[in-house]
């Protein structure tokens, strides 16, 4: 469960996030949808505690991310925007390193790594060094290390960026599985089809504010669009911020 209330964050003169509030429920997939530079990434970065908000508050499972960042980090698994891995370590070693820093170890950790390797179909390259991995393989390594501690909440920053059709489909399948297992999944995207295909809940962000939110169907009803894409354009339509 994620609760975000009146979040604001500026970098010097630039107000990246002005007023963002939303909730993302357990066992649901929530999508942060918006054009480039709308404030999606900044919102996520505040949630995973690498940035501190200027205003408002953000809670993960009731834990304030500013007051108890370590507690919040224990409950979240994060796929960051540029999900680089350690090139000289194998995929398995990359995952193991993250697991150890989560306080895991021994046979428990090894079992969990095996589980993730088979779940993400990483067996063919799990014991190879990650230097030279394809984008799809890199994302899998990054996902596996984000999920190694079985977090209740999963945050994904534009996870399908740079993936081909097959890899994108596989990733969507995985996100659905995470929902089925009861995780709270929050991901950002600027691709409407993706959000429409996956999300139970959509939060449309534009210029640092929430422009609209609700289920895809409810949004379509409210704005009278025939598809989510049309709705998206209508929500943002009269503004020039569409990049």
């Amino acid at each position: 469960m994620i609760e975000v209330e009146n979040l604001g964050k500026s970098f010097g003169e630039v107000a990246a996030v002005q007023d963002v509030s939303f909730k993302a429920g357990t066992g649901r997939i929530t999508g942060l949808l918006g054009p480039n530079g709308a404030g999606k990434s900044t919102t996520l970065r505040i949630l995973y505690t690498v940035l501190r908000p200027d205003r408002g508050r953000a809670l993960v499972d009731g834990i304030d991310v500013v007051r108890d960042p370590l507690g919040a980090r224990r409950r979240i698994g994060v796929l960051t925007h540029s999900a680089g891995s350690y090139r000289q370590l194998t995929a398995r070693e990359n995952i193991r390193f993250f697991g150890r820093l989560h306080g895991m170890g021994g046979p428990t950790l090894e079992r969990r790594i095996d589980e993730l390797v088979s779940k993400l179909e990483m067996a063919p390259f799990a014991d190879r060094r990650t230097a030279g991995f394809s984008q799809g393989q890199k994302i899998k390594v990054a996902l596996a290390r984000a999920l190694v501690h079985s977090p209740a909440i999963v945050l994904l920053d534009e996870p399908t960026n740079g993936l081909d059709v097959m890899a994108t489909r596989a990733l969507r399948e995985l996100i659905r599985e995470l929902r089925a297992e009861g995780h709270c999944v929050l991901f950002s995207s600027h691709v409407m089809q993706e959000v429409a295909a996956l999300c139970d809940e959509v939060v449309i962000i534009d210029r640092g504010r929430v422009a609209a939110s609700g289920t895809p169907a409810a949004l379509q009803d409210r704005f009278g669009g025939t598809s989510l894409e049309e709705t998206f354009v209508q929500v943002l339509g009269d503004q020039e911020g569409l990049a």
């Binding site: 505690t49 690498v50 980090r73 979240i76 925007h81 350690y86 090139r87 993250f98 820093l101 306080g103």
Partner: peptide
Amino acid sequence: RGSLESLLTLPVP
């Protein structure tokens, strides 16, 4: 390489 941000999301100071 873009691995720092992921590292900083781990529950260690």
